[in-house]
Amino acid sequence: MQRVNMIMAESPGLITICLLGYLLSAECTVFLDHENANKILNRPKRYNSGKLEEFVQGNLERECMEEKCSFEEAREVFENTERTTEFWKQYVDGDQCESNPCLNGGSCKDDINSYECWCPFGFEGKNCELDVTCNIKNGRCEQFCKNSADNKVVCSCTEGYRLAENQKSCEPAVPFPCGRVSVSQTSKLTRAETVFPDVDYVNSTEAETILDNITQSTQSFNDFTRVVGGEDAKPGQFPWQVVLNGKVDAFCGGSIVNEKWIVTAAHCVETGVKITVVAGEHNIEETEHTEQKRNVIRIIPHHNYNAAINKYNHDIALLELDEPLVLNSYVTPICIADKEYTNIFLKFGSGYVSGWGRVFHKGRSALVLQYLRVPLVDRATCLRSTKFTIYNNMFCAGFHEGGRDSCQGDSGGPHVTEVEGTSFLTGIISWGEECAMKGKYGIYTKVSRYVNWIKEKTKLT
């Protein structure tokens, strides 16, 4: 034993070699072989497995989906700052455009905790909710729209109204504003409101030439003092309507412009014939205590009207009353817009006519005020429907199939267009061939041609 100890002390290297040989010859039971080890760690190889990531292109799944990435790591994937920024906006807080917040056709661009709407022409605001041009839906104005110097929408209202708090709607500024039905039992019968379409306001006024200088022999019209197929109006439903009495009662109609003036057809009036105007009328054979009678003290036909040349060209006249009318729910003026808007309103496509005229061709006159909704007829169809001249200051309205029309005794009465609950004068009943005849239409004086003249002559002093 002493000898062994001496050998170990003198030859430590020998001992180490012996131990190493023993270990190498022993069977290893701690580690699995290569094949079995792979069965336990069965993990798919990654895209760049075996390579240094710093030297390969980034992978979106590896960089940002398996674990949260930084902007720089995302930049490695896209290799483009702009594309990385677009991805980053949604990656950080989701897609803010998912709810489609942009209105009126706006395009949404996502941002971090926010979004941006790219608005089409005519709109602005956070969600493109603000109209900035009158060309689109009248700028959301209830009545009139004008573009300011910086191309912003400025709404306005006709006389007797003021802008509401929203700067879009119009509200009454006087007790009985024009064009409004205020009798409670008839307010439910107000005709369907007309909503502004998209309009090209630059070209809204037709490029028409008034044929002022045409000389033409007097034409022989049949029954051209021209509501057939209409309905009984309720008291106060058309408070701007008046009836004219002269040699015979209810020979023509008219509309209240203001307390002192009536507008009617020029062919209705004769110099030297006494005319009485009755406002607030409903049943011409009954006294309903809503009527107001006034005498006409002055007749002003349009300066281009000449019955000797043509009885229905420039067929418009103004009547001055001896005493002002007292405005109330049964006696209310009709609204008159400017030339541009009167023309736009007419193009809405349908209007209402009213009167006490004959209820059928050569038949009896109506006792109760009649009204009828009539569609506008395109000019080409209008011209083809008659052998008589249709001037540019006239328009056609009615039904091709016949059966409904204005008729004798309705002449001078109103053709009105309702705009968001307020009625505007767009025409004056003038003439036609018979009444409600198939293929024939009622012919009306186009008020847009005469609004400046009306307003100039009827100013209240």
Rank of each mutant, 00 (worst) to 15 (best):
G402H: 04
N100A: 05
A366R: 05
E418N: 15
S107K: 11
M8D: 05
P12Q: 08
H415A: 03
R162Y: 11
R384Q: 14
N113E: 14
A173K: 07
E401A: 11
S255C: 10
Q185N: 13
C141I: 00
L346N: 05
W240F: 03
C268L: 01
V353S: 14
E72W: 15
F221Q: 04
W88G: 15
G13L: 12
V243A: 09
P239V: 01
I210T: 11
V296F: 00
T381Q: 13
K362S: 11
G236D: 03
D93E: 04
R180S: 04
G125T: 04
G403Y: 15
A436F: 09
D150Y: 08
L325F: 11
D131A: 02
S217G: 06
Y91L: 13
K293F: 11
G412Y: 14
K260T: 00
T271I: 10
L346R: 09
V174I: 06
Y352M: 03
Q216Y: 06
S156V: 06
C178A: 01
G50L: 08
H314I: 01
F55C: 14
N343D: 15
V359Q: 13
R364S: 15
I443Q: 07
F424Q: 01
V374Q: 09
G432W: 05
T84H: 14
C382T: 02
Y312A: 10
D378G: 10
F176A: 04
E434A: 14
I262E: 01
I210M: 04
L383D: 14
V263C: 02
A317K: 00
K247T: 11
V326N: 06
H303T: 11
G351A: 09
A397N: 01
I7C: 05
I390R: 10
I336A: 01
W240C: 00
C119K: 03
V273P: 10
F388W: 09
R191S: 11
K446P: 05
V181Q: 12
C69F: 04
L130P: 15
E418M: 15
T426V: 00
G432H: 08
C335T: 01
V451H: 08
C128S: 03
H314K: 02
P120A: 07
K438A: 04
I256Q: 01
V248N: 07
S107Y: 06
T417V: 13
L244M: 06
F251Y: 06
R294C: 00
D232Y: 08
G105C: 05
I429L: 12
V92N: 03
C117R: 02
T342E: 11
E76C: 15
E72H: 15
D378H: 09
W431A: 05
K457N: 15
F399I: 15
P375N: 15
H282T: 12
N113R: 10
C102A: 01
T218R: 03
S423A: 06
P333N: 05
L41V: 15
V227Y: 05
N147I: 05
R358G: 14
S220M: 06
A317I: 02
I284L: 08
P101Q: 14
V243G: 03
G106T: 05
Q90E: 06
A337R: 01
E116Q: 12
F251G: 05
Y47V: 10
S107Q: 12
H282D: 04
G402S: 11
G427D: 00
P175Q: 07
L23A: 04
Q96C: 14
V92W: 07
T417D: 02
L20A: 03
Q370P: 04
S365N: 11
Q241P: 01
R83K: 07
N306P: 02
T81Q: 10
T461Q: 13
C69I: 04
V30W: 10
Q237A: 10
L244Q: 01
F360V: 11
I336C: 00
S11Y: 03
Y391N: 10
V199G: 11
L14V: 07
E159H: 04
H34L: 04
P301C: 08
M8P: 07
P175K: 09
A149H: 09
V228E: 08
A307V: 10
L325S: 00
T133E: 13
E159C: 03
G253W: 07
N310I: 02
T461H: 15
V269I: 13
R180H: 07
K188M: 12
E86G: 15
N258I: 01
P324Q: 04
L189A: 09
D212M: 07
T417H: 02
T225E: 08
T461E: 11
L346I: 12
Q57L: 09
I316E: 00
N393P: 02
K446W: 01
R384H: 14
E27T: 05
I454P: 01
G403K: 12
D33V: 08
K188F: 14
N343L: 04
P301V: 11
D110T: 13
K293S: 06
S156R: 06
V248Y: 09
V331D: 00
C157A: 01
D95G: 13
G236I: 06
L346M: 06
C18M: 09
K446Q: 13
N38C: 08
H415R: 01
C134H: 02
N127L: 13
N42F: 05
D93T: 15
E285D: 10
V4N: 09
N113V: 12
L23K: 01
D223I: 12
I210F: 05
V183H: 07
K51Q: 15
V228K: 11
P120K: 04
T290M: 08
G357T: 14
D249Q: 05
P324V: 04
D410V: 14
G280L: 01
V277S: 01
A307H: 07
G253E: 05
T445I: 02
V263T: 02
E165K: 11
S114C: 15
K146C: 04
P197T: 10
T85L: 09
M437T: 14
K260P: 01
A192T: 07
R83N: 14
V257L: 05
M6Q: 15
V331W: 00
E286Q: 04
R294H: 01
D200W: 10
K362Y: 14
E129Q: 11
R404P: 08
Q143K: 00
L325T: 01
E82W: 05
R226A: 04
I344A: 14
R180W: 04
R180P: 02
T209K: 11
P120G: 07
S255R: 00
T417Q: 04
T287N: 14
G403R: 05
H361D: 14
R180T: 04
T218L: 10
E259V: 04
A37P: 15
H282A: 11
R358P: 05
N245E: 08
K387D: 15
E323D: 10
Q96A: 12
G357M: 12
V30I: 07
A337Q: 01
N283M: 09
K45W: 09
N258P: 00
S148G: 10
V174M: 08
Q408R: 08
D223F: 12
C128A: 03
V174C: 04
T264G: 01
F176Q: 06
C382E: 02
T84C: 07
A380D: 14
S156I: 04
E54M: 07
E124M: 10
V228Q: 10
N104C: 02
I344D: 12
T158N: 05
I299W: 05
G106C: 04
A149K: 08
V269K: 01
K68H: 09
E79M: 09
I454N: 01
S204N: 08
E86V: 15
G106S: 13
K45Q: 12
A164N: 06
L367K: 07
P44A: 08
S220V: 10
G442S: 04
V227G: 09
M8K: 08
V374S: 06
F31L: 14
L244S: 00
G13Q: 08
A436I: 14
S11G: 13
R364V: 13
V257H: 00
D212Q: 13
V4D: 05
L327S: 03
S350I: 09
E286T: 08
A250T: 09
N59G: 04
W356P: 11
H267G: 04
C69K: 07
N258M: 00
E171I: 11
G229Q: 09
A308V: 09
S148R: 04
T186D: 12
L60S: 15
G230L: 11
V92T: 07
V451M: 03
F144T: 00
P177S: 05
